[in-house]
């Protein structure tokens, strides 16, 4: 089985809220002293792929579309034991829109060649767009199943388990296929062995430019024309706890209950 796992490199989502700043010009978060990390759902995807490979054999190619910094994500993927690493260098817009990303990934995948399975994270911890998998499937012209947390080889095709709002579903699918991966208790990304981290530094990474994969590089560099972030801001947080008020306990609990309902309804 030839598996391609797409990984996104994002700003560490654990930057404490009080350290979080926005760059109004670039319309994105300021990096500050924070690190770039691999998006957790993408790591879940890689972990799922590694486990699938243990069962079915095959090769795993890690694919990243990012600036040079994306090399770190690929090194980590190699350390986790992906077989190959491909970096499509983003020398344009800092956060191209999801269709532009899907378009680039699809072109890169075509360039890589045969594949049976493409795995992506269900969404990213920065923009949380949640569209890359679906759009990529359309770009590639293959089916897609979302929120998958397990794959097995069945008698005729893959058996894919995915989470739903109130349970799970199992699907049978032919390949090629795109799946978006969500987390469960079994696909917690493994911690690479230090030995493998050291080795990964010496493994080759294939670098591709936008021009080399045959896309409309100018449009991608401009960020695409699917959608545009027109504004981003930090909501004024109610930093202090609002203690419910009222003359009687009854009133205060009533207030408390109302606030609970208010919040739960908006979920």
């Amino acid at each position: 089985m030839n598996i391609i796992v797409c990984l996104k490199q994002i700003l560490d989502p654990e930057v404490p809220a009080r350290d979080f700043r926005i760059d109004a010009e670039k319309k994105e978060a300021v990096r500050g002293t924070a690190n770039l990390v691999t998006n957790i759902f993408c790591e879940n995807a890689l972990e799922t792929a590694l486990q699938l490979r243990e069962k079915t054999g095959g090769r795993i190619t890690a694919l990243v579309f990012a600036p040079e910094s994306g090399e770190d994500a690929l090194r980590k993927a190699l350390a986790m034991k992906a077989d190959e690493a491909v970096l499509v260098i983003n020398d344009g817009h800092p956060h191209p829109d999801p269709l532009a990303v899907a378009h680039v990934l699809a072109a890169a995948i075509s360039k890589i060649g045969v594949f049976d399975l493409v795995m992506v994270g269900r969404e990213s911890g920065d923009w949380g767009v949640g569209q890359t998998g679906g759009l990529l499937a359309e770009e590639l012209g293959v089916p897609c199943i979302s929120f998958v947390d397990n794959l097995e080889n069945g008698t005729d095709g893959l058996i894919v388990t995915r989470q739903t709002d109130n349970g799970w579903e199992k699907a049978r699918s032919t390949t090629p296929l795109v799946v978006t991966i969500t987390n469960n208790e079994y696909n917690v990304p493994r911690i690479p062995k230090t030995r493998d981290i050291m080795m990964s530094a010496r493994q080759p990474i294939t670098r591709l430019t936008l021009d080399e994969i045959g896309v409309d590089a100018a449009s991608i560099r401009a960020g695409g024309n699917y959608y545009e972030i027109v504004d981003i801001s930090i909501p004024v947080k109610e930093v202090t706890c609002e203690f419910v008020t009222g003359d009687s306990l009854d009133e205060r609990v009533d207030q408390f209950a109302k606030r609970i309902i208010e919040v739960t309804q908006a979920l």
Binding site: V188, R190, I191, P192, K193, T194, R195
Partner: peptide, 10 residues
């Protein structure tokens, strides 16, 4: 255990 086996408490 940590560096060669990556086998230690979660």
């Amino acid at each position: 255990q940590v560096m060669e086996e990556s086998d230690f408490p979660e």
